[in-house]
Nucleic acid binder design. Structure first.
Lengths: 146, 146
DNA sequence: CTGGGTGCAAAAGGTTTGCAACACT
DNA sequence: AGTGTTGCAAACCTTTTGCACCCAG
């Protein structure tokens, strides 16, 4: 229970940083919305709905911090926002996203389907792969059945 | 020679649009820089270097237009710009990008390595794939050999 | 107590929009 | 001639920064 907060507290201490109320709130929001892909504005609104007013600059600075500490990762859905998503520490690479072109839903895809691709890219381009970001567009199951 | 401009002219006519000097200049810039991934500011500067002053709004509106007509496609390299690249009409999907984390170079990758992936995604998520965007991060051949 | 953190408001950076003048067709 | 297009400047939207005040350790 709240292992993430404890881990967070430890990492902050290790870096001479402080566990503030605002940082707790934002980390908790990510925990509660681990299926979503939040941007700064959405975080601020969500906090406000819980009765917690957090300044805009603080939200942006906290997002930077959480990313640097590896608790969230940036994702880009081409909508002019920088979005963030809770990181599952078990994942080796970032996971990927299926984006439905009808309803806009974004489905997380855990599979690491690109292992074979890395070898091909290395052989053909002499390129040493460290990570990859994949967005797959199409129509989701629900929209297909309508 | 200049098949692209002729095709462009035809498509514009079909849509009751006009072939203006600015549009020609911008399309030519894409042709001359088909290996690059230009943003609006870069286009404007490149035009100016050729002695062609084009207004900012015109650049943005022309990029929208070229994208809608299918001559260029948006690509996102996570650098806060909307970038565009000349579309090779022979390609079925957009092509993908290898991004070197040392020198920043972006290499185009024509291979459609993800055909098998589409089937897997369909079987597992009931998701009907229409397109995919892949960015692969790592270290390029030149940087590796240094 | 003291250095890191917060909130405000201003600035920055990229893109979009309104409008009068302009130029393809 | 007439409609689409341009350029300017202002507006917009998201993110960043400076600074005085605040609070966790």
């Amino acid at each position: 229970m709240n292992k993430k907060i404890n881990n967070f507290e430890k990492q902050l201490k290790d870096n001479n940083l402080k566990l503030t109320g605002q940082r707790k709130i934002i980390l908790n929001l990510f925990e509660e919305n681990s299926d979503k892909h939040l941007n700064a504005v959405e975080i601020q609104k969500a906090a406000l709905q819980q009765g917690n007013r957090i300044g805009t600059a603080t939200v942006y600075r906290t997002l930077d911090l959480l990313e640097k500490l590896g608790f969230v990762s940036k994702i880009n859905l081409d909508d002019s926002y920088i979005r963030y998503q809770f990181v599952d520490t078990k994942e080796e690479h970032e996971h990927h996203h299926l984006i439905c072109e009808r309803c806009g839903k974004v489905i997380d895809m855990q599979d690491d389907l690109l292992d074979s691709l890395e070898k091909q890219v290395h052989d053909k381009y002499g390129f040493n792969v460290t990570n990859h970001k994949v967005r797959i567009y199409g129509v989701c199951k629900e929209c297909l059945s309508k």
